[in-house]
Nucleic acid binder design. Structure first.
Lengths: 175, 175
DNA sequence: GGAAACTGATAGATCAATCAATAACTCGAA
DNA sequence: TTCGAGTTATTGATTGATCTATCAGTTTCC
């Protein structure tokens, strides 16, 4: 037989492909409703091979979440460095977040992570750490006070919900 | 054998007991990670009997969500009626929402509903309808403009996340 | 005795994870 | 320049657990 291996990859390459596939699936269906079979199918590999790349489903989920945190943080910091003044920085960061809006995957990922964290102490610890890390990065990059930070993140959370629900009420305005 | 039925109830009574049990379970673990077995165990009945009270798990989940929407809406409307002035009404409603904070179940329920809705068109339609209904109720009860409504709901969403993650950053302030 | 409340048993599907095995690439030696 | 040994990538088969939903039957009350 030997149907010809269409594409054999480096472990590292494959790992990133799996991460990308998992991101899409987790974003849409959440942690528990996403099966490793679906992720594997989307990544174009067999289901058991996932376990050669990640020790378990939970670790894969957290890897996806950590990557999202890293991307969001990087976008925020870059935006903040592009202008001067606290309010200007916050506005620029709001703009940056809007880019994530086009492809809602990033936002839904966060929402799913927060939901999954609620009932799972281990997950909760890691995900709270990720959230706090973004919070601290924004605080440091802007120098904003607690009140403005709360408003900024509150609006971000509303955008997340808007992305999940396809809300008409949350398709406009910029903070 | 016949171990003696400890407590036999009306269908309606039992239904509400199941709703209460389901609320706790869904709030903590979300739609997919909550099994009907766990709900039944918490409600003190056998698992199959749930299907005599609700046609399926999805309907039960939506019933829980609808009840939450009703409670939140009622609390908001009552708070708004207690004072005069748009800002005063919004502040009173923020106060009312804080009451839900003590028992985080209500907040987590919403977060879980939003997450479950993301990847399920049918669920999404119902849950978006619930969210919009709260939004409209608040708009009508306060007469606030879109900008203030966005800020109000944004803060609410942040509280939801705070409840799910046990965030230190979101344990203070009142809008 | 008949309706309403309730359970036991179970079918059928799915899922995370393990294991043994195979295919393909790398690179040094002949 | 080929051979082959070792390494890396990848899969098939399978296990045991779990979950939704159904159905037939039993208890309890009026």
């Amino acid at each position: 037989m030997a149907v010809a291996t269409t594409n054999r990859m480096t472990g590292e390459e494959r790992r990133e492909h799996v991460l990308a596939a998992a991101k899409r699936e987790f974003a849409e269906n959440g942690y528990h409703a996403t099966s490793t079979t679906r992720i594997a199918k989307r990544a174009g590999i067999s289901q058991p091979y996932i376990y050669a790349l990640f020790p378990d489903k939970r670790t894969l989920f957290l890897a996806v979440y950590d990557a999202t945190v890293a991307r969001v943080t990087a976008a925020f910091v870059a935006a903040a460095e592009s202008v001067e003044g606290i309010d200007e920085k916050l506005a620029a960061m709001g703009e940056a977040y809007s880019e994530f809006l086009e492809d809602r995957v990033e936002l839904q990922c966060q929402l799913q992570a927060h939901a999954a964290a609620a009932g799972d102490p281990d997950l909760q610890a890691d995900i709270r750490a990720g959230f706090s890390s973004i919070w601290r990065a924004v605080a440091k990059a802007t120098g904003a006070d607690q009140e403005r930070l709360v408003a900024f993140f509150a609006y971000g959370m509303l955008l997340n919900v808007g992305a999940a629900l396809d809300l008409p009420e949350v398709a406009e305005k910029g903070c």
